[in-house]
Write a protein that binds this DNA or RNA. Structure first.
Length: 277
DNA sequence: GGGCAGGTGTAAT
DNA sequence: ATTACACCTGCC
């Protein structure tokens, strides 16, 4: 058992339950999930996060990086508070941090998320890990490597309830396994070019691309527009008028700039947890 | 039981 | 550049 220090206003539970990552089970101030092949149990107490299931230095450092514990959230939120809507939202959403997920796992997870619901996304991702992931210690399971998914049988993928997304998963796995698509590349490119690159992948549209750029590649200016955020922006910034996704992205870029991704997270969490009539 | 769900691909203006 | 429609499948 180890404790990782955190900087206020970091909030572990909000960070893990606001839809960035699937596979964490959150309850009260605790979170259970699989990290680096281990079952881990996290609990936020005061100014620290108590970690059970990991003791090695390297893995703890990796967890710290994943949770983005060194982020200057106070600075980000100070900036966002200049916006009237976010100023109202922040008391309910403060402490959300952008994770730094593994790009491959994030990419496949969000391909699976398209036109799907959360319980079923969790079901599918969980089964992919059970069936195709390398077994880790303590009955944990790693996310399957591209090679494992590339060679997965139709029957095996079918058991993961992927539906028509199965062919996207297979195709993307093949592109990555063969080296035709380099997962390191988007990290090196500026946001617009990284985005164009991801959009060449089958099953990856604008929303999924932005999710991966934001949650795995650290492109904080990304602003994924899903139905919830679209609804929130139309309601609170356009007086309920219907606006295209492109206009919403331009609006977010103009208004929030480098912190658009954080703005998106707070709007998303706020509109989902505090529905108004 | 039937509609719905954190979009994407494709075809047609 | 925009708009319309089909789409696997487990849940509520």
């Amino acid at each position: 058992m180890r404790t990782l220090p955190v900087r206020p206003p970091y909030n572990l539970v909000r960070t893990l339950s606001c839809g960035q990552a699937f596979g964490w089970r959150v309850d009260g101030c605790m979170a259970d999930g699989i990290f680096s092949g281990r079952r881990v149990h996290l609990r936020q107490v005061g100014d620290g996060i108590v970690v059970e299931g990991i003791t090695e230095r390297a893995a703890l450092r990796s967890l710290r990086h994943y949770l983005n514990l060194d982020e200057d959230l106070a600075g980000v939120e100070d900036h966002l508070r200049s916006d009237r809507v976010l100023r109202r939202a922040l008391p309910h959403t403060t402490g959300i941090a952008l994770l730094r997920q593994d790009p491959w796992e994030c990419l496949i997870s969000f391909i699976v998320s398209a036109f799907n619901n959360i319980p079923k996304i969790e079901l599918s991702v969980g089964r992919l890990m059970e069936r195709f992931g390398e077994p880790g210690v303590d009955r944990g399971s790693r996310f399957p490597r591209p090679e494992a998914l590339e060679s997965a049988s139709v029957r095996g993928l079918r058991a993961c309830a992927l539906g028509y997304r199965a062919r996207y998963v297979t195709a993307v796995a093949r592109l990555v396994a063969s080296g035709k698509f380099d997962l390191e590349r988007p990290q090196l490119l500026p946001y617009p070019e990284a985005r164009r690159l991801l959009l060449t992948l089958p099953g990856v549209g604008e929303k999924v691309a932005d999710c991966v750029l934001l949650f795995a590649y650290g492109k904080r200016e990304a602003f994924p527009v899903d139905v919830w955020v679209k609804r929130a922006v139309e309601r609170w910034y356009f007086r309920g008028r219907a606006v295209s996704n492109g206009q919403i992205r331009r609006f977010a870029s103009d208004r929030f700039g480098e912190d658009a991704g954080y703005a998106q997270q707070h709007l998303f969490h706020y509109v989902r947890t505090r529905p108004r009539s």
